[in-house]
Amino acid sequence: MAGILDSVNQRTQLVGQNRLELLLFKLHGRQRFGINVFKVREVLQCPRLTALPKRNAFIRGVAHIRGQAVSVIDLSMATGGKPIDDIHNRFVIIAEYNRTVQGFLVEGVERIVNINWEAVMPPPKGAGRYSYLTAVTEIDNELVEILDVEKILDEISPLSTDVSESVREQSNPQTLEDVTILVADDSTVARNQVKRALSSLGVKMEVVKNGREALDWLKAKAKEVGGDISPHVPLMVSDIEMPEMDGYTLTAEVKANPDLKKMHVILHTSLSGVFNQAMVKKVGADDFIAKFHPDELAGAVQKWLKTDEPAAQAQTST
């Protein structure tokens, strides 16, 4: 198992080609789940766990791994299932999300598969466990469920979405009355976090669930305004991991389109520890913000909107 991720560092060429690699695992029974390999640091047999007083019920304990204390979350319990039993014969996926490292207790880990984001679909609408899905795909004629880890982590330890007063004071909403920011993210929790943080700046937002929806919306907007959309939509904040079309591919499509290319793009993603700076430059993104720090996101939005204030003012005066 220790060798299953040996080649992760050589896999970055997949980024920007609308492809991803999933590490497949199981919680209970035959159902397979997937996690993006770029989120994963290592996979190991569950080590000895130390119980903590007053811990969240979904955290089975803390493991000391390579000099770091890592909380180990029972993914089955966190998604409404029964606890994983016989944990010392199970596995822990060590992953980095939103600037922190977590361990996810799973029943078993299978293999890594290479797929196209176009084959990854939004989850079916419904209740129950589907509320914890961010996407689904089909592998070996079986459904693979991709969990909304950001939602799970937010339920265990909610993040503040409050922007500090000092940052809010730098905003000038009077010049932004007729412009809109486009936000693209497949996670319901992440979309709500961004909306709550940026609403305090007095900016208007259009929110979509994936890169395909974002590109379709932008093209329709360009047709509506008759060309360059940047005076109307000066900025897009996009996740990277999204079904149907990822954020890298979306950015490349935007920058290659004459009507869209003047719009600024901030990539806002939980891929913080394994982020590929060279690929961001390659696709033409203007900025990268690791999830989730409201002041950093708000500050970046203000920065790129200020570069377009003359255009916004001209649009307002017409």
Score class of each variant (00 low, 15 high):
residue 35 I to C: 06
residue 50 T to H: 09
residue 37 V to M: 06
residue 11 R to W: 02
residue 50 T to W: 02
residue 53 P to N: 10
residue 42 E to C: 06
residue 41 R to Q: 13
residue 29 G to H: 05
residue 32 R to L: 07
residue 23 L to H: 02
residue 44 L to A: 05
residue 13 Q to S: 07
residue 30 R to D: 13
residue 47 P to H: 13
residue 29 G to Y: 04
residue 47 P to G: 12
residue 50 T to E: 13
residue 32 R to E: 10
residue 29 G to F: 05
residue 27 L to Y: 02
residue 44 L to K: 12
residue 16 G to A: 12
residue 53 P to Y: 13
residue 29 G to D: 06
residue 53 P to K: 13
residue 40 V to R: 04
residue 10 Q to H: 13
residue 29 G to C: 07
residue 17 Q to V: 04
residue 21 E to M: 07
residue 11 R to C: 05
residue 16 G to C: 05
residue 28 H to I: 15
residue 43 V to S: 02
residue 50 T to Y: 11
residue 37 V to N: 03
residue 45 Q to W: 06
residue 30 R to Y: 01
residue 13 Q to W: 14
residue 14 L to R: 12
residue 20 L to S: 02
residue 52 L to C: 02
residue 9 N to Q: 08
residue 45 Q to I: 14
residue 25 F to T: 06
residue 46 C to R: 06
residue 39 K to D: 02
residue 8 V to Q: 15
residue 32 R to F: 02
residue 8 V to E: 09
residue 11 R to D: 08
residue 15 V to W: 00
residue 40 V to C: 03
residue 18 N to Y: 00
residue 10 Q to C: 06
residue 40 V to M: 09
residue 30 R to H: 09
residue 38 F to Q: 03
residue 25 F to A: 03
residue 42 E to S: 14
residue 52 L to T: 14
residue 15 V to N: 03
residue 24 L to Y: 03
residue 25 F to I: 07
residue 44 L to N: 03
residue 12 T to D: 09
residue 14 L to T: 05
residue 15 V to G: 01
residue 39 K to W: 01
residue 16 G to T: 11
residue 28 H to M: 11
residue 39 K to P: 12
residue 20 L to H: 00
residue 23 L to V: 10
residue 51 A to K: 15
residue 31 Q to K: 14
residue 15 V to H: 01
residue 47 P to I: 15
residue 51 A to D: 10
residue 44 L to H: 07
residue 32 R to Y: 00
residue 28 H to P: 03
residue 14 L to I: 09
residue 20 L to A: 01
residue 33 F to P: 02
residue 30 R to L: 10
residue 21 E to V: 00
residue 17 Q to E: 13
residue 40 V to I: 14
residue 41 R to A: 05
residue 42 E to L: 08
residue 43 V to D: 08
residue 45 Q to G: 08
residue 23 L to K: 04
residue 22 L to G: 05
residue 31 Q to E: 14
residue 48 R to I: 15
residue 8 V to K: 15
residue 46 C to F: 09
residue 53 P to Q: 14
residue 32 R to V: 05
